[in-house]
Design a protein around this nucleic acid. Structure first.
Lengths: 183, 183
DNA sequence: CCTAGCATGTAACCAGTTACATGATTCA
DNA sequence: TGAATCATGTAACTGGTTACATGCTAGG
């Protein structure tokens, strides 16, 4: 239940519906924290029960009523506590593509190279996204909201994405050479 | 249930107990696919029901009987199918530390820098691990088993770890400078 | 006309974690 | 004496996915 902190983080900027939160996630944290609406709605309900947020209903016609969530003092305190926590260790991510490569001895050389090239294409596409779409989006939000302090941090997370993809590309290019030569 | 492929991958090298599988994981795939014994045992049972593996019991005294698992033809076929699959997209990892940074506008500059420095220390330690422990371990396994073809692939996954940690370190060093200057 | 967007959810399932249980042997 | 290793597991829980349900409006 760490989606909780994503939701608290956004609700700390202002009241929002579950649907709004989903859009915010898709526009920003998506690449390091994503969630479906079918997880967001019950999580908000659960958070309300825990007094981290509360809701008011805005009637609408032709659509389900909007349900605006607001952060409570307790919610803000919980967010703050989490922000200040220092993780004691790195929890390693699961990387299915590394796992596949690890066991790829059962495939022939050509097949392994095809897989690496495929990954290379995916990561090149993702790098481009960070360099264009994401960069433009952050610029737009700064202009609209004037949240300059926040924007420094958002830009850092974008830069991480770019650096990560570039690292993958470099590693894959090297990996292809090594597999061509040694496998 | 993708632990399944890790288990099939190792069982494809030879028969093993759940306990052995855990040790193999901890010695190799741990940094890109980890699992607890409390997940391994029921998963093996489930795989046996699906005819991907079968087991024989070796009685022991003073300890619970050993249960050796072997891969079946169907298990091998399943492994092969998975190895040959091309993922259609990159599923983004969850990065709690990026999430924390994204919302760190609620903290003061000094606190943010402390968090970045903390991460830096963790990643430097992890880099060292890949450069020493892991490197030595792979060398040892090659000498013992002579699995040269496999070792090329294992070394590539180790190199990924090293490159990934180095990228994190570089990014964090830059991030600290930027936060010092702009936040 | 059909797709995307708006707006809410529920139910069943899957993957993984935490905590518990048992009990002998070996090593510092 | 107490921790680590060997060796098996189960039960309760958490986090997240997939599939289903409803239904109106705007735009190409």
């Amino acid at each position: 239940m760490s989606l909780k902190y994503t939701l608290l983080g956004f609700l700390n900027y202002g009241p929002m519906t579950g649907y709004d939160l989903k859009k915010h996630i898709d526009n920003s944290t998506k690449y390091f924290w994503h969630a479906r609406l079918s997880q967001i709605y019950p999580t908000l309900k659960h958070m309300e029960k825990d007094d981290l947020v509360y809701s008011t209903i805005m009637p609408q016609e032709g659509k389900p009523d909007k349900k605006f969530y607001m952060i409570t003092d307790q919610g803000r305190a919980d967010l703050l506590t989490w922000l200040e926590e220092f993780p004691s260790e790195i929890i390693p991510d699961k990387r299915p593509e590394l796992l596949r490569l690890f066991f790829a001895g059962a495939l022939d050389q050509e097949n392994v190279i095809m897989h690496l090239r495929h990954q290379l294409a995916l990561h090149r596409a993702q790098l481009k996204k960070y360099q264009t779409e994401t960069t433009i989006y952050i610029k737009d939000v700064i202009e609209e909201t004037g949240l300059e302090r926040e924007s420094v941090l958002w830009e850092l997370t974008r830069q991480f994405g770019e650096d990560y993809e570039q690292m993958n590309i470099d590693w894959l290019e090297q990996a292809i050479l090594i597999v061509e030569e040694k496998l």
